[in-house]
């Protein structure tokens, strides 16, 4: 499957990655060949087979509705590039 320049730019935007002009071409080629390789899977007949969500045979583990307050807010805010009082501060993002 051929990935064109437009698709590469869209993926870059969704991934919040900036690409240089020469990289666009490079990634387009790389991704196209990866997809070509993966497309071999299409040769397998999967009609009437349910999609596999997980290879594990165990069941979804459940948790009791109990709270644990480990006061991790200091730890959490330690990673903030900027904080005021108890808030994370980020560049203005208004939609």
């Amino acid at each position: 499957m051929k990935i064109d320049k437009k698709t590469i730019l869209k993926i870059a935007k969704l991934s919040k990655i900036k690409l240089k002009e020469n990289e666009i071409e490079e990634f387009a080629n790389n991704l196209s060949s990866i997809l070509d390789w993966v497309e071999q899977l299409n040769e397998t007949d999967t009609d009437n087979i349910e999609p596999l969500n997980n290879v594990s045979s165990s069941k979804l583990p459940l948790r009791e509705d109990k709270t644990v307050s480990n006061n991790s807010s200091n730890q959490v805010l330690n990673n903030a590039p900027e904080k005021v009082e108890e808030y994370f501060i980020v560049p203005k993002v208004v939609e």
């Binding site: 979804l60 009791e64 509705d65 959490v76 805010l77």
Partner: peptide, 26 residues
């Protein structure tokens, strides 16, 4: 509550943290 006082490392999406579902919510 005080801002960011009810945030575990799972809620802050620290690398390696895994979600475990609350049975009561189900």
């Amino acid at each position: 509550s005080t801002p960011n006082s009810q945030v575990s490392l799972v809620d802050a999406a620290m690398p390696g943290m895994l979600p475990v579902i609350n049975e009561f919510c189900i």
